[in-house]
Nucleic acid binder design. Structure first.
Length: 267
DNA sequence: AATGGGACCTGCGCGC
DNA sequence: TGCGCGCAGGTCCCAT
């Protein structure tokens, strides 16, 4: 499931691979992933435009185009961007001016491609919380103060803070020794500070290792990301905690698999 | 207001 | 072996 580190990895690779290139053709194998406008207009308005700039906001990728419009890409759970692609399993392929394909793969069809006038006007973007790296300790403490929500649910809320999904939420809380069901406002000042530090540290490390290849995520090159090796709790139910040798526990929280060490992370 | 559940989807792994 | 089922989780939507 691509979260901030995976999308950032993709963004950096795309900067090197396709920036400044022209889209010369669009091959649509499944129109469902094109959310707006309709397929015909999407193709027409993308043809012969140049990719001027690539931006990441939370888990969203944005291509700013020479036409003045923007192409936004949300990978959701199983989206992949592959370059150079072969077009074989793609939902949509973009043929570029270098003759190569940029493939958008997405087995589950949750992903979203949108061609919009201005990405900043998207509701999703307007409501998006701050980037973790833009947060100061004081600001973060203030944000947590009145929130009674369970801390894990809160840090996965894209309106609260952008970029953290289920995998990294589990990892971050383990490292900060905070139980996922703690009410956000119950954290001490020290815990809040440590939580923000671990959010930044874990995300930075994951970017360094080019993301976590669980499920379908791969880099643009098709290679896996290496951060899985460093996971402490995610997908480790009943395996020993690396810190205390207790057993990693799995519970459901907000319908999502939640992994933690009940010894290290007290309620 | 905040929380919980379902919907959207497909592929995989499990149990029988 | 093969089939059917449950589960995986990002986001939106609806009900309570």
């Amino acid at each position: 499931m691509p979260e901030l580190p995976e999308v950032e990895t993709i963004k950096r690779e795309l900067d090197k691979a396709i920036l400044g290139k022209k889209v010369v053709d669009i091959i649509v194998n499944n129109a469902k992933v094109i959310r707006e406008p309709k397929k015909e207009r999407f193709i027409k308005e993308l043809k012969n435009i140049v990719i001027k700039k690539i931006i990441r906001k939370g888990k969203l990728l944005i291509f700013e185009l020479s036409s003045g419009k923007d192409l936004t890409i949300h990978l959701k759970m199983t989206g992949q961007l592959i370059y150079p692609g072969n077009g074989k399993t793609s939902r949509v392929s973009f043929k570029l001016s270098d003759g190569k394909l940029l493939d958008f793969n997405d087995s589950r069809l949750f992903g979203e491609l949108k061609l919009v006038d201005n990405w900043q006007n998207l509701k999703f973007v307007k409501e998006l919380g701050l980037e973790p790296f833009d947060l100061t300790e004081n600001k973060f403490k203030e944000m947590l103060e009145k929130k009674k929500t369970k801390i894990k649910i809160l840090i996965m809320d894209q309106k609260f803070i952008s970029g953290i999904g289920n995998l990294y939420a589990n990892e971050v809380l383990f490292r900060a020794k905070i139980h996922p069901q703690r009410p956000a406002s119950s954290l001490s000042g020290k815990e809040k500070g440590l939580l923000l530090k671990e959010i930044k540290d874990v995300l930075s490390e994951a970017i360094h290792y080019k993301g976590s290849s669980v499920d379908q995520y791969v880099q643009v090159s098709g290679r896996p990301g290496e951060y899985v090796k460093y996971h402490q709790v995610y997908d480790r139910e009943n395996e020993p905690c690396f810190r205390c040798k207790g057993k990693v526990k799995k519970i459901a929280l907000g319908g999502r698999g939640t992994y933690f060490c009940p010894v290290c992370q007290k309620l």
